[in-house]
Amino acid sequence: MATASTTGDARPILDQIATTDRRRRISWRLWFSATWVALVGSLLFALWITGNIQLDFIAEWSPFILQGTTTTIILSVVSMVLATILALIGAVSRLSSNPVINGAASLYVSLVRGTPLLIQIFFIFFALPQLGIVLPALPAGIIALGFNYGAYMTEIFRAGIQAVAPGQREAAEALGMPERLVMRRVVLPQAVRIVIPAIGNDFVAMIKDSALVSTIAVQELLWRARSAGTQEFRTLEALLIAALAYWVLTIIFSFFQERLERRMARGDR
């Protein structure tokens, strides 16, 4: 048999390698998914054989509880937009050479990160009315969440801006671009790419932390689960439904986040 190296055609081997690789990948994925299904399935089965799960309650109250999903999504998305705006302003301010601007931004971050989110929510909804500022529950919740996450994200954006290579700023300045333009056109677009994974994580956390505003009677997922559960004395089922809904939401979001990250990385390489 001739050595296939120089003149012979090695293509059949390549095809075989490709087929084997594909088969391995598919089988890996199958096992991976099967593990999930098996674990979740046995957990639910274990709950069911205790005989304490009422499927009737689930069938009857699921629609009511799941209606809260819309509120949860609105709450999370609007709060996230607010947080992003605050974080952008905060980050640029934290890097400012002006002591007043820098001081104000750093106080914001310190204060918000140094106090519990739950107190901030209560403060805006229960304490501000004492000063004559009365906000409906949903806007109060959005402001509290947005304000809180804005502080954490300020630090993320600041790190992102500082992670942009100093040469980028120099190159832009050397072209005669004024400071603001350098920031807007050169530094921020690159910083945003750097922070997208971290911001994505924060959004997942935000979806879950939005449950805290159930305490001020915003009728989102957890609030509905609690009210249905207490009313019918079926807290276990109610909480299960809500927990599943949060879980599915975060899975869906993570899926899109992964795709976004892959797409943004493509332009760079």
């Binding site: 120099e170 072209l175 005669g176 790419r193």
Partner: peptide, 20 residues
Amino acid sequence: IRQIRMRAGMLFQDFNLFPH
């Protein structure tokens, strides 16, 4: 300074093209 920079183009050791 900006006026000077507009009149003097600069080339860097590591290029510093805008990657985005």
